[in-house]
Design a protein around this nucleic acid. Structure first.
Lengths: 244, 244
DNA sequence: AGGGTTTGTGTACAGATTACACGTTATCAA
DNA sequence: TTGATAACGTGTAATCTGTACACAAACCCT
């Protein structure tokens, strides 16, 4: 029984959650926070504070509070760690093998988040928090590698049909930036002409009649996501056809 | 703080989980168990044992045990309630609004399951457990209606690409039965000739050279799912193309 | 002024999806 | 045995979708 072990739990929040001593099973949330920079998909990680995982990186997470909804907890975590409000967040799944946490029984619910690295001028207060390129991540603390992969899989499924990808881009962007982002997420190269045709058909974008002005080559047009699609909600207009 | 309220928790398992008294947040699993009978998609429900939900139906669930993996708990629930082993089960999501359970703070992880109503000769020991047609379900205890809908959505997404639907059918089945099942799940009518062509292309089935013998009309051929697809695992052979 | 880089655009082919009809084989009841 | 009923088994043409592919123009930089 891991109750004793839980008493040793030590986190940034440990003072405030002394009631943990009485838990048999503790509940946490973990966030896989994706960002996009220099044509690379990245995720935000923090140095683990557990001796068992010294020098290992881990996802941003926290224990859930008695008086907060499960789905609210990751918003709090993001707010605390990055200062960001109104981020895109979606639940991916819960992970609860018995020994996934060395200090005791902890079940965690994973969320993925998409944020625009540059635009928000995040105050990453904690200097142990850094962006990492996904391909270079070999190992993470706990089962966080597995959680990261589940979230990446979900992301790849969702960007195809739903306009969630724009949470990773600035307000105004070129089609090249959008294509680079799709390629970084899906890990494949796309044909430029066919990509533009496909995006045009989805009817997600407004041409705002502006041009890039900071590129060392011919500038492209800038676009915005249509305002009625900015709510991060699943798309109503795209009625999916049954394929069987 | 709902700790006091939790002491009042009363379930079939309550003797064995007296440690619940010490929980601040309890964790449960709930199963949305789909079956197929008479061209209708059904789910298995149990009469709620809480006074607050007297005469309401609810999903089959239980609190998680300290020494069991989260993803093992729903297998135990199904074994206990229906006697079934080796069922198809998949995690769908976790639900944890503060007031979802009237007796205290309970976060639940939902799973969906597909079982063959007839074949397994289930011993439904508890006579408060019954199959219900999905369309007729107006209300369930707790937030179970919402959970059911999330699971139905997931099921509809999965049957299109992955050979999970066969868990709802007997070992041998006709293409008509399969089409009726797809139609019940997706809620649409399919063209018979195109459906057969599509199924043939997926290459999921073996023609076993037998015929129906219990139908009041011309019998159809019987098929089996190819044995290498019976493991309930995601399909390797169907490499999905990126659609962007 | 010229080299480098990216933009913007259309068409032809292949593959997939859809709509649609008729003769056949079985059961059932008269 | 006959006729009514119900589902089986099968193919083609029209349309839509996905893919492969090339060239002139715009801008930056030196």
């Amino acid at each position: 029984m891991p109750t004793e072990a839980l008493k040793k739990l030590k986190t940034a929040e440990s003072e405030k959650i002394s009631h943990l001593d009485y838990f048999n099973i503790a509940i946490s949330v973990d966030c896989v926070i994706f960002g996009f920079e220099k044509k690379e998909l990245k995720i935000l990680l923090i140095k683990s504070d557990l001796a068992e995982f010294a020098n290992k990186w881990s996802l941003l997470g926290d224990f859930i509070k008695p008086a907060e909804d499960l789905d609210s907890a990751p918003y709090r975590v993001l707010k605390q760690r990055t200062g960001l409000n109104d981020v895109f967040l979606q639940q991916v799944g819960s992970f609860g093998t018995i020994n996934r946490h060395p200090s005791g029984r902890v079940i965690t619910t994973a969320y993925y988040s998409l944020i625009n690295i540059k635009h928000h001028q995040m105050k990453i207060t904690d200097n142990e928090v850094h962006w990492h390129m996904i391909e270079t991540i070999k190992e993470l603390a706990f089962d966080h590698k597995q959680i990261m992969e589940a979230c990446l899989k979900r992301l790849r499924e969702q960007v195809v049909d739903e306009p969630v990808i724009f949470n990773l881009l600035p307000e105004k962007f070129s089609l090249r930036e959008l294509q680079d982002l799709y390629q970084a997420i899906l890990g494949i190269k796309l044909d430029r002409r066919n990509f533009r045709k496909k995006i045009a058909m989805k009817n997600w974008l407004d041409d705002i009649d502006e041009m890039e002005d900071d590129v060392p080559h011919r500038p492209g047009k800038l676009y915005k996501l249509k305002t009625d699609l900015k709510n991060n909600k699943p798309l109503k207009s795209s009625v999916k056809k049954a394929k069987v």
